[in-house]
Design a protein around this nucleic acid. Structure first.
Lengths: 206, 206
DNA sequence: GTCTATAGCGAGATAGAC
DNA sequence: GTCTATCTCGCTATAGAC
């Protein structure tokens, strides 16, 4: 924690770490205060309540779990294969840097789905669906041209996202059972970028 | 809750529902008591503490997340393609009946990895790895025969498991964003069994 | 075995000095 | 803005009657 950060920034930084690690229910305001190097009263001075502070953190990270890929998706000069390769690479690199965000976000949504419903109605919702129609359209077009197999585009999307995210959800179990260090896991995921890309291409090419 | 169940069974049934829905930290003993139709004191009479009751539930369900597939894996009369098809079918059918177990188990392990470490050292550990060596050997053999592509067997396993489990982790988000009912989601996963099987076969066949 | 009543503690939130 | 002290409530756990 750098001394130069504003108190508000120190709190947000500390709260992110603790909430992501322990979840909303498992987090104590005193843990956050300690991690930020201040005391409990100051948390309430800046953020009024635990719930309010949590929402700030949750909405920051829930917007990151669906990264902004509009530029990639709408690019007209890349083939479908290049787009898939780029997507896998960008997304896994992001998750290697932020490995605990997926389990945190999905777990909180599971415990309290309303937190999502409220925000989707909100016009300022940070949960933006990327321009899927454009992608679906491109899949259909390339299939019509005979360049890829006819495949349900939505299942294909779910397949790609699943293979990228799930290893991070199951990471603690995998590392424990297979005695992998954190560096082992990083290496596994680095290598996996090529592995997945090849797997998907083999699955859809004619 | 049937009147004919023993009190202990009623408690375990109620505790499963509440713990899986709310997690350890989010669960109150009074919620469980109410769901079981009894009062708090009786919970402690039967299970002594919240932690003790939780461990019973956790270890029951953590053993189910890696289903017993030894018979399938060790079957010598089935091709690799048939085994994959069977595996996907059995596993997704199980998850359709128990859609919230994965997020519950992975979330609790994330918050407290020690709960796993302690049990793996335990010889009576319910977390049994299936006989992966046999499967890896079969992959290598079929690849050598030229029946499937040379592919890293461990990544292939992770791919298969990811595509089966992840939709259940992301289910609340997917259902909310795409306005899917519970029945819509079930139908989606039923159809997905064939979709995934075909995808994997296309990816690995020569 | 099952209940009511309550002990005891921990956590979120606030008051008020500096 | 930042701190110490404290209020208040809710939760786990136990005591003890039936």
């Amino acid at each position: 924690m750098q001394e130069s950060l504003s108190t508000e920034q120190k709190i947000l930084e500390a709260a992110s770490q603790v909430f992501i690690r322990k979840g909303y229910d498992g987090t104590r305001m005193s843990d956050i205060a300690q991690a930020a190097g201040i005391n409990k009263a100051l948390l309430h001075y800046y953020f009024r309540s635990k719930e309010n502070l949590f929402e700030k953190i949750f909405f920051t990270y829930s917007s990151k779990i669906i990264p902004n890929l509009d530029a990639l998706i709408e690019n007209t000069s890349m083939s479908i294969f290049e787009k898939i390769e780029k997507f896998v690479c960008i997304y896994i690199d992001f998750l290697i840097e932020n490995p605990n965000i997926p389990i945190f976000i999905f777990s909180e949504i599971h415990k309290n789905p309303a937190i999502l419903i409220n925000r989707i109605k909100d016009p300022q919702s940070p949960i933006k669906m990327p321009n899927i129609h454009h992608l679906v359209w491109q899949f259909a077009e390339e299939a019509a041209k005979g360049k890829i197999k006819m495949i349900n585009p939505f299942h294909l999307l779910v397949n790609i996202v699943s293979m990228c995210i799930f290893p991070f959800i199951g990471r603690p179990m995998m590392q424990t059972v297979l005695k992998m260090s954190d560096d082992d896991f990083k290496g596994f995921m680095q290598y996996r970028k090529q592995e997945i890309t090849q797997f998907i291409i083999d699955a859809i090419k004619i």
